[in-house]
């Protein structure tokens, strides 16, 4: 599964897109677990002390922030879905 990383996360993972060798039909939460397992430095960037995603972190599934999907981070990722992970970003 391909995952795109942005902004300050990108130097940590080393590239824009990273291929993850994970099972089909995993949830967003399981994917995040796989991401921080492979890149331990991302844990403090993405997760609070309780292991939950920070509110300013975005894990988009086809452009929709996972917490707003009907099943939230328990949403099953479908083949062909686009996954984008952002740290806090703003400006304007």
């Amino acid at each position: 599964m391909q995952v795109n990383f942005y902004a300050t996360l990108r130097p940590i993972v080393g590239s824009r897109t990273v291929q993850f060798d994970v099972d089909e039909n995993i949830t967003v939460q399981q994917l995040v677990d796989a991401v921080v397992t492979r890149f331990p430095r991302l844990r403090q960037e993405l997760l609070n002390d309780n292991g939950d995603l920070y509110p300013h972190v975005h894990v988009f599934v086809n452009g929709r922030d996972a917490p707003y999907l009907p099943d939230g981070v328990e949403t099953l990722i479908q083949p062909g879905d686009t996954i984008d992970i952002f740290p806090a970003v703003a400006g304007g």
Binding site: T8, F86, V89
Partner: peptide, 17 residues
């Protein structure tokens, strides 16, 4: 992100969403 990339750190996220 604002300090490291400037305001243009927004371009990818607004396009993505």
């Amino acid at each position: 992100g604002l300090s490291v990339y400037g305001t243009n750190v927004l371009m990818n996220i607004t396009s993505t969403m």
